[in-house]
Simulated assay, not measured.
Amino acid sequence: MSDISCTLDGRVASVTINRPHVRNAMTLAMWKGMATTFRELGANREVRTIILTGAGESFSVGADVSEFDAIRADAGASAAYEMAVDSCSDAIAGVPQPVIAVITGYCLGGGCHLSMACDFRFAAPTASLGIPAANLSIVYGVRSTRRLLALVGLTNAKRILYTAERVGSREALKIGLVDRVCDDPLHDALSLAAQTCEKAPLSISGAKYILNDAALADGGLLAQAMIDCASNSDDYREARKAFAEKRKPDFRWC
């Protein structure tokens, strides 16, 4: 059985971290495999929304520290490891489709890194989130630290990183680390997925690109190209036609 599994139900893909016996601890191979999975999903125009979750009782306790002596023992190895972790989170953040993290149990360290790369985070009432890097003498990566800052603000980011304390889902909601707390986060994630799957994918992918600040890095050139593509698309023509005919549009991502 694969440590990263992917299923497709209609237009919704579900990616599951599948090592429940170790609370879904992520190995180096899994970071790389997750990146490949999301790149493939991002290129699949049949997929309109992606849900990321963990098998069993937890989302993920983060990196599998038991392999650090072999693969992350010094600065050089740590840099290579962080490149793989960042490549994974960039692949999640970079897909054009919305990504919803469904968080149960522990969501720690690298698990938080994964969840923060998603567009939305839905948590169970008993979920526990934290970044224990300070317990391991590790400096949390630049990308993940910047995402944490964007979500929770400077003071809360410092508290989380300086103290390595865990926060419950209600506190996480209060500070912005999760977006919703519900008894059945998967059900709510699927409800949101049903909504987003009906909307124009060119609109969503363009908005996601701009909101994630990628447009600042390229001077807005690709963002303008995405705006122009949508304005010239069959989907735009279909939307105008559907509006006139008082029906739902049938978007084809083209």
Rank of each mutant, 00 (worst) to 15 (best):
S89W: 02
D90Y: 02
P96N: 01
Q97Y: 11
Q97D: 07
A101C: 10
I103C: 07
G109A: 12
G111R: 04
C112K: 00
S115C: 10
F120I: 08
A124C: 09
P125Q: 10
I131Y: 02
P132F: 08
P132C: 05
A133I: 05
A134H: 08
A134L: 06
N135Q: 12
N135C: 13
Y140F: 15
G141C: 10
S144K: 05
R147S: 06
A150D: 15
A150T: 11
L151D: 02
L151C: 12
V152C: 09
G153S: 02
G153D: 08
T155E: 14
A157P: 08
T163I: 03
A164R: 04
E165H: 06
A172V: 09
K174A: 13
K174H: 11
V178K: 00
V178Q: 01
V181E: 10
D184N: 15
D188V: 08
A189E: 12
L190N: 04
S191H: 09
Q195N: 03
C197Y: 06
C197F: 07
C197W: 05
C197N: 14
K199H: 14
A200M: 14
A200F: 04
S203F: 15
I204M: 13
S205D: 06
G206M: 14
G206K: 12
A207G: 00
Y209W: 12
N212V: 01
D213R: 11
L216E: 04
A217H: 07
A217I: 13
D218Y: 06
G219F: 07
L221Y: 05
L221N: 02
A223C: 02
A225L: 11
A225G: 05
M226E: 03
I227A: 07
D228I: 08
C229E: 13
